[in-house]
Design a protein around this nucleic acid. Sequence first.
DNA 1: ATAGCGCCCTGGTGGC
DNA 2: TGCCACCAGGGCGCTA
Length: 277
Amino acid sequence: MPELPEVETVRLTITPLVINRRINGVHAPFPGVVHGLSPAAFAEAVVGQTLVRSWRRGKFLGFTTDQGAAVLFHLRMTGRLLVCKPEMPIDAHTRLYLSLQDDAQELELRFIDMRKFGRVYYLPNGNMNDLPTLARMGPEPLDPSFTPERLGNALLGSKAPIKAALLDQNRLAGLGNIYADEALYRAGIHPQRPAGSLDDVELTKLHEAIQYVLRQGIVYGGTTIRSYVNGRGQTGQFQGLLRAYGRAGEPCDRCGAPMTTERVGGRSSCFCVHCQK
DNA sequence: ATAGCGCCCTGGTGGC
DNA sequence: TGCCACCAGGGCGCTA
């Protein structure tokens, strides 16, 4: 499930292969993949533009073009981005692909998504605020401006379980089920705690834990549970270092007691009842 | 405004 | 062995 570290890893692996390439064509075997406009309209808008810069906001991966527009991808659950030669056989789950040309050769950027949750967005002016989801999105947890105080502000007054609040992209960008469980485990905080009830010491611990697990996730190239691969088709390596997510019934790394699983905020959550208060 | 829940989607898994 | 209910969950839209 691509979360911030997986999207960042995809961005890092894709970027050198697609930057300074001109979009020559658009094909959308699954027309619904393009958000808010038809594939034909998307193609008409984007063909002829050159990708000049990549960026990430939460779980969105964006490419800015030479005309100041932006093409965004959201991988949701099972989305992948793959850069390959045109002659490579098309995967059955390919939802959209862009033909990219430079002086030397043509490549394709393919968006593959088994479950069709993923979307492609086009922003004519490249302005993130034109997409309401991005305009509302909370702070970037790895930005230097993200402090324990800002985390506290994001959670202030919330009676929702801290786990649900961490998954709420309007409070904090980029966390999904895996890294939320990992961060709460590392911080020793029970997922059912009301988000607004954390004291300053806990906020400091949770802030450190969020940054730590996200940075580790990036260092290890993301977490592959089922389908995630980076832009070169390689799996991540962080799954071997998970201490909470998916470890129900296994012994806690700290105290040895079996890890508990429970649904919190509609999501399965793994935690240690002894170590997380 | 906030919190909770169903929905979209498909493939893998586990139970009978 | 075969079938099928169930589960995974990000973001959105609806409800109370």
